[in-house]
């Protein structure tokens, strides 16, 4: 084989490598993932309980922390393994078990106020992240069960411990079986 051919092959390979490298670099800079849309997409997978068990003040801040690489994806007990799996699939990371440091999975529950004991202090109202408690000072309070996320954030402010979490009332989904007469 002549030297020319070897030189030629090396040159062609080098030119190819340079061209492709430049193209890839350009593509990477142009098609950079949009950080905001990533936060949105992560947020969409979180259960929106706004419970703060992940030590962030709500689901969106946690989503931002995941997007920024500041937090792992294993901090959301209300979402459970399903949420971790969905996050892992979105971010192309291996799924991992929930970190027990942030609490374990619990059955879905909603807050319930013992209206006999409620003194109407209104301290739980601002604590509720989704405004699911109705009431006013010196009036009895109650929880709108359909809107409660079961985050437990209303428990600590209550001075008389009249709030407890109860299992979600069974929701009939009203699936009607169509019939052949």
């Amino acid at each position: 084989m002549s030297t020319d051919a070897v030189v030629m092959a090396v040159l062609v390979a080098a030119a190819l490598a340079v061209t492709l490298g430049v193209a890839l670099g350009w593509a990477a800079s142009r098609i950079e993932p949009d950080a905001d849309s990533l936060v949105e997409r992560i947020d969409a997978l979180l259960p929106q309980t706004q419970c703060g068990q992940c030590r962030y003040p709500g689901c969106r801040p946690y989503a931002a922390a995941i997007a920024a690489g500041a937090a792992e994806i294993d901090r959301c007990p209300p979402g459970g393994a399903a949420t971790v799996r969905a996050l892992a699939a979105l971010l192309d990371r291996p799924p991992r078990p929930l970190d027990p440091a942030f609490g374990g999975p619990k059955p879905a529950r909603v807050a319930w106020i013992d209206e006999e004991r409620c003194i109407g202090c209104a301290r739980c109202l601002p604590a509720c992240p989704v405004d699911a408690i109705v009431g006013a000072p010196r009036q009895m309070h109650t929880v709108i069960a359909a809107q409660c996320t079961g985050c437990e954030l209303c428990l600590p402010p209550c001075p008389v411990d009249c709030i407890e979490l109860r299992p979600v009332p069974a929701v009939s989904l009203r699936y009607r079986q169509p019939r052949a007469a």
Binding site: P47, Q48, T49, C59, C128, P129, V130, A146, Q147, T149
Partner: peptide
């Protein structure tokens, strides 16, 4: 139903904040 509830909770939380 879960997705709807999450969307509602997100919106209510945003208004709350």
């Amino acid at each position: 139903a879960t997705a709807q509830k999450a969307a509602d909770a997100r919106q209510r939380h945003e208004l709350h904040m």
